[in-house]
Amino acid sequence: MKRIEPMNRIALLGGHLALAAQKLAQQKDAIRGFFLGTRTTYGLVFTIILYLLLLAIGFVYLYPLLFMLITSFKSPADLLNPMVQWVPSEIYWGNYVKAFRVLDYPSTLMSSILVSVVPSLLQTIVCSLVGYGLARYEFRGKRLLFVLLLATFVIPPQTTVIPQMLAYRDLGLLGNVLSLILPALFGQGFRSAIFVLIFYQTFLSLPKALEEAARLDGASDLMVFLRIAVPTAIPSYIVSVIFSVVWYWNETYLTVVFLEGSVQTLPMQLSKFVQAYQNLYPPGTINIFDRLNEAVKLSGTFLNILPLLIMYFILQKWFVESVEKTGITGE
């Protein structure tokens, strides 16, 4: 058996102690890390605060929608009952039935689709042409063109809409969907400048090599654009079309000025809800429970945004990743 010198013994003990202390420190670090985070993970406390914060903001953010949805299911009795705040005593569909009739839903839905989809498609095609021209060709006055492009974004529609309206009146186009389609066809649709910039950024970031190769093979400029540039920019096209549709759908200033009286879109009908309701259910001839109340109005509002909500939840990836997909960040 080996004899251990006393001095060595002490050294050994010291070593053990140091090891234990180190282990303890490691454990403590691990516990600390679990709660407060380390360099690579966030830790429990931080994560909980993060989720609480996000949930709280998310709730405030969605509050109007929740309020609308819940109120729209309240029966007239529930509305009058102060005890019923967040949970209706029954799911009451009557409001929706009335709102559906008041909005003249099938027909206004169709015209909303028409008024938003057709100009959007045209606007996207034209804006992509312009964006490609700006991104790929050098010509005089390009800087001026950019300035004008930004100007079209800034100029309030009020300063240009009256002469347009009068011109349409003379041409007999007032109340015709063409009055929205024509500006879109010439790159002057609703927020066209944004879409031109999206395509400008997209085409600028595409490698030129393929296009040059095709050109050397004898393809014309238009062919190069159609065969090579367009297919590689498909994500930008999709993003443009869906944003365009949403913005046209929600646009009510131009649609009211140009279309009022002949084409009724959903938002237009919603803004006349009270009047339309009284036409269908004249006050005085109906019982008290059929009077117009906020539940019916909010059902109408919900029916109004329902198509957009459906579209959003199907295509939400395209919406929330739009900025990455198109590469536009404003530089």
Partner: peptide, 30 residues
């Protein structure tokens, strides 16, 4: 290059004159 560049943006330039510039001037006159 310049010619093709102009061809690509031509539609927009026409649109700008017809649907923005002229109405803007007209509104200014009004």
């Amino acid at each position: 290059q310049a010619l093709y560049g102009y061809l690509f943006v031509l539609l927009w330039i026409i649109g700008f004159i017809v649907f923005t510039l002229v109405p803007l001037a007209e509104t200014f006159r009004y």
